[in-house]
Design a protein around this nucleic acid. Structure first.
Lengths: 150, 150
DNA sequence: TGATGGAGTTCCTTTAGGGAACCCTAAACG
DNA sequence: CGTTTAGGGTTCCCTAAAGGAACTCCATCA
């Protein structure tokens, strides 16, 4: 599959897709987040091809989202989230909120989030980083920014 | 089946990926959002292969994210976001926030968001739908939900 | 009666994902 | 000291999906 390179597009969605848009990448991040940090663990938990897992891990390390580090005298490595990576979890949490709402069906959501601050089972919602009020697609105007395409 | 089917996994991330995880899908939603709603417009703006565009549009309509509707007596169609689709834009907005922060580089973000409520240039942040306080990956406990895997 | 234009199809080439087998290295075992 | 063992990958082959250009269909318009 020859695939278009999204990384050079003047669009933060495309650029973010270049980092985590390949199949499996978000699930790898989820797994690392919940504690599956080693190659064998990831492979077993996800059922992903070892070849593809290698490619994805390298790509995520390349992009600064994961860090590969030894955990033993022997050549053993684990993958941990960097700051960049931890912030990417925001994207996953919104995907969870959407999937729970629209795709969970009769069975209900596979996992629940309990928010430390209030102790309640909840989910994420979008707020304005400036004023704190709700901020969704219909609540904004889009303006050209400094990095807009020529 | 050569590509793994994410739709049956007991994971809302995987299920959401099944809907918008294929290459181009998020960019198509972005374009529809900002007003490119017709086949030719999308093809020209994205530079996507017509074949793939057809597949993606069908898939997104199938999944209830877009609606295909005639806009002329002639066989002409446009694609519009459904409720499900409009809520998916939340995912895109968080990707934009992350991409703007980590990938925009010297040039700065390609587009800016002005929030209607406060009038300021801003971006989205995650809040708890219950208490309104910040809610990120480190602020929650994960518990098994009713739809957890057997 | 063409010509036009939107909205797709068809067909071919190239490359990425799936899957199983294989390899390498450094302990640990006997 | 030779052999297992186990984590962490490579290699190889096969299939399916992305790119891209050309082609089709069909209702109006000139």
């Amino acid at each position: 599959m020859q695939r278009t390179d999204f990384s050079e597009m003047a669009c933060s969605i495309a650029r973010t897709m270049d980092v985590i848009g390949e199949p499996w990448s978000p699930l790898i991040l989820r797994d690392v987040w919940v504690g599956f940090s080693r190659f064998e663990q990831l492979q077993a938990d996800l059922g992903i091809s070892r070849k593809v897992l290698t490619e994805r891990l390298n790509h995520l390390v390349d992009r600064g989202v994961l860090e590969r580090r030894p955990y033993d005298k022997r050549p053993r490595y684990e993958y941990v989230l960097t700051d960049r990576g931890r912030e990417l979890l925001d994207v996953l949490m919104v995907m969870v909120a959407w999937g729970d709402k629209w795709l969970a069906g009769e069975a209900g959501p596979p996992v629940l989030y309990r928010h430390h601050a209030c102790g309640e089972i909840s989910h994420v919602d979008l707020a304005c980083a400036h004023c704190g009020k709700p901020m969704h697609a219909d609540d904004i105007d889009i303006l050209p920014g400094p990095g807009a395409a020529a």
